[in-house]
């Protein structure tokens, strides 16, 4: 399966990288990691790319790491639709101090607008 994994740098997006990479190693998915602009992330794009590279290397998965410019949600949806991806994978939400799941704005946009299947990683 051709999978586009969107990463904004939040903790839930890093968890999504770990789980999706582990699945790709077993299932043989063709994985592309797209690092998107995320103003609410404290991590720089370089830091995020380095974290992703380490996770990929640890699982022995060969994947392209790309940087997408512009609005994160729409750039993910555009890329997935125009390049024939089977699925978009993104982090499935942060939790509040109380433990409530909050869906971020990127996830909300992708869910409502993508014509490609979307997976939220929990």
């Amino acid at each position: 399966m051709k999978v586009l994994l969107g990463v904004g740098g939040s903790d839930d997006s890093i968890r999504a990288v770990e789980q999706t990479t582990a699945r790709a190693a077993t299932a043989g998915d063709e994985l592309t990691v797209a690092i998107v602009e995320n103003p609410s992330s404290d991590r720089s794009r370089e830091e995020i790319a380095e974290m992703v590279r380490e996770i990929l290397d640890a699982e022995g998965v060969d994947a392209e790491i790309r940087h997408l410019e512009g609005d994160p949600g729409s750039s993910l949806v555009d890329t997935a639709e125009s390049e024939g991806f089977d699925e978009i994978v993104i982090g499935g939400g942060q939790t509040s101090p109380m433990g409530k799941i909050n869906l971020g704005s990127i996830a909300e946009f992708v869910l409502l607008n993508s014509h490609v299947t979307v997976s939220l990683v929990r």
Binding site: T95, S96, M98, G99, K100, I101, N102
Partner: peptide
């Protein structure tokens, strides 16, 4: 609501320990 309270006893205990 938004995933809480969680469903199984083990998760309920973990969540309660926290709050």
């Amino acid at each position: 609501a938004q995933g809480i309270p969680p469903g199984q006893e083990r998760r309920i205990r973990d969540w309660l320990d926290n709050i």
